[in-house]
Design a protein around this nucleic acid. Structure first.
Length: 372
DNA sequence: AAACCGGGGAC
DNA sequence: GTCCCAGGTTT
């Protein structure tokens, strides 16, 4: 009696089994990742490195994270080492990566693990989710990848893959509930960590937002969106709102020794706890704003004190929810009026400060050789 | 549910 | 220019 064979490429393998077989051949090699072969040899991921990578990867591309991950693990190889660092150390290390509350929560979390958890990460989704900076996605990702717990790991890649597999018509973010349910249904008991990473690799390399490579996809037989003919229509998203423009002025203050004057931003709100050059408030102007009004918003009259302010160009910087246009002014001074509680930094040492990109742009406009 | 919170790369 | 990236927190 011969065994019945399927007529098409459709087999009895589950989507998870097909995806894991694809992952064994096509997985990305990343600095924080244990390869499937190494995992079979008994190698296990370091929960500290998985946590660190997952926080860095929140809304941030793999390519951008690599260098920061290597820098952080070099400076702070363990969660205890990170707990022993200062918050300013961590913010300086994070400068340029964005979403700086991640760095502040990272430090808080390291302190908690060191002080209250005996240096060990909780080995459950619920336990992990109690920690600062660890939400639905990151708790599931650490549980799955570091501890091989069959948690449903749903990031932007998985949302795209699953919404296409099942041709989910519900608009985002309302569709997240359905997507989670389907992801739980897909997640296997065997190799859940590799399954989560495989879903993300599939979304990053095959099931891409535009022009997905469906011909190469191990799940193309299972994909309802491909059957419909336009997989790139998923996930369905609502139109986005326009980004308002804010205006202001930044002031590069230079000492006789060529140092630049910096100060520290408030510990809440935009760029919290980071360093800055003195600058005005950033005011939104609607489309009806007159050129005179914008001139006023970007004027040297908004400086923290009177000086010979030299117009030194302007910069534009895009934040998540507004666009910022700053006029930049420079002045050489011999002293700073009191109540400007900042500090002086030699120009060649500015790279070691916790300067967000917008501030590096402003300094670069007035002092072009600073960040070469 | 919506707003807030960076920066950069691909197109 | 647009989109979106291994999202979390706050309101």
């Amino acid at each position: 009696m011969t065994k019945q064979r399927p007529l098409s490429s459709e087999t009895s393998h589950t989507p998870a089994e097909k995806l894991l077989a694809w992952y064994d051949r096509h997985h990305r090699v990343l600095p924080w990742r244990v390869t499937p072969d190494d995992y079979r040899q008994g190698v296990r991921p370091d929960p500290y490195r998985i946590w660190l990578s997952e926080v860095m990867l929140q809304q941030t591309t793999v390519e951008a994270v690599k260098a920061y991950f290597l820098k952080f693990t070099g400076l702070w190889p363990t969660v205890q080492a990170l707990a022993d660092a200062t918050e300013d150390d961590v913010l300086r290390g994070w400068a340029g990566l964005g979403y700086y509350s991640r760095a502040r929560n990272l430090k808080k979390c390291a302190d908690m693990i060191a002080m209250q958890y005996d240096g060990q990460f909780p080995q459950s989704v619920d336990g992990l989710k109690q920690l600062p900076g660890i939400g639905d996605y990151t708790s599931a990702a650490i549980a799955a990848i570091a501890f091989d717990i069959p948690a449903a790991v749903v990031d932007g890649n998985v949302e795209r893959v699953v919404s296409r597999l099942f041709a989910i018509k519900t608009v985002m973010p309302q569709a997240k509930v359905e997507i989670r349910k389907f992801t739980e249904q897909l997640t296997p008991q065997n190799r859940p960590g590799d399954f989560a990473q495989a879903m993300m690799d599939l979304g990053a390399t095959i099931c891409t937002p535009k022009k997905p490579a469906c011909i190469l996809c191990p799940l193309n037989d299972n994909c309802a969106a491909l059957s419909e003919g336009e997989p790139e229509l998923y996930p369905v998203k609502a139109p986005k709102k326009a980004r308002p423009v804010r205006y202001g002025a930044a002031f590069i203050i230079v000492s006789p020794q060529g140092e630049v004057y910096l100060r520290k931003r408030a510990d809440k709100g935009l760029l919290a706890g980071m360093s800055e050059v003195p600058n005005s408030d950033w005011i939104a102007a609607n489309e009806c704003a007159t050129p005179e009004h914008i001139m006023q918003l970007t004027s040297a009259e908004r400086a923290p004190f009177a000086a010979q302010w030299l117009p030194s160009g302007s910069i534009t910087h895009i934040f998540t929810h507004f666009e910022l246009r700053l006029s930049v002014y420079k002045a050489d001074v011999t002293s700073i009026p009191p109540s400007n509680n900042g500090w002086w930094v030699a120009q060649q040492n500015l790279g070691e400060e916790a300067l967000p990109t917008v501030m590096k742009k402003a300094i670069g406009a007035a002092l072009p050789d600073t960040f070469k």
